[in-house]
């Protein structure tokens, strides 16, 4: 009975949406975005929209990300920590991590710094760098690394990056400052924020349930 209701309503929804969606095609020509991109000093149309015209959306989105990480932190903190000893240091893994980590960091820096020219940007860069930290954690043991990366400093970095983004974004909007340097700065700040956020979420998930 319930299955029938679910399947029925979903089938009808799909049907009506498909009929509507087919009516949308063929789409008209893409709007001309190159002028806009040049005005912001970007060669990537997506970057010009994300960090230029619709920077405000991006600011809000960064706050969504940061606040979700705050939520993860406060939700998981009171839960029991994983009691078993973390992964012992293993020679091979450790060396692999030492080798790979610089590559990952350089790659993510490249992604962040060239996001206004080609595909990339602060978000994937931050996610990749955060995963790189996770790789390091696999080798070093998550507790040790989290002691080495001082939590207070990380928070300062994270909220500092958001604050910087907000102030820079509003100021650039109000005073009409534009240019590719600004876009690189935005991307780097977003990258820092997302790296720290990713590290926090992975670290908390890892140390409160299961081992990496």
């Amino acid at each position: 009975m319930r299955i029938a209701a679910v399947v029925g309503v979903l089938a009808l929804l799909v049907g009506i949406l498909l009929v509507g969606a087919f009516g949308l095609f063929p789409l008209g020509d893409s709007p001309d975005w190159e002028k806009l991109a040049r005005a912001y000093g970007a060669e990537n149309g997506v970057a010009a929209v994300v960090l230029g015209t619709r920077l405000y959306d991006t600011l809000l989105e960064v706050m969504v990300f940061a606040l979700a990480m705050v939520g993860v932190r406060y939700t998981l903190t009171p839960l029991s920590r994983w009691k078993e000893p973390v992964v012992p240091e293993r020679g091979v893994v450790r060396e692999m991590a030492d080798l790979l980590l610089p590559v990952v960091i350089v790659f993510s820096l490249y992604l962040a710094a060239s996001g206004h020219l080609g595909p990339g940007g602060g978000f994937p860069a931050g996610a990749i760098a955060g995963s790189g930290l996770l790789l390091l954690a696999m080798a070093k043991g998550i507790e040790r690394l989290s002691r080495e990366l001082h939590e207070g400093t990380l928070e300062l970095l994270e909220y500092g990056a958001i604050g910087g983004l907000l102030v820079l974004g509003v100021a650039s909007g109000l005073f009409g400052v534009r240019g590719s340097g600004l876009l690189v700065l935005f991307n780097l700040l977003i990258g820092i924020e997302v790296t720290v956020g990713t590290w926090v979420v992975l670290h908390y998930f890892g140390s409160h349930r299961g081992e990496i």
Partner: peptide, 23 residues
């Protein structure tokens, strides 16, 4: 409409956190 989307997501994300704040 898209700015409304992001703003609504942000309001309700903060609301999720506030509803569960006592844990």
């Amino acid at each position: 409409i898209f700015n409304l989307y992001v703003s609504l997501e942000l309001t309700s994300l903060i609301a999720f956190l506030l509803v569960g704040i006592e844990g």
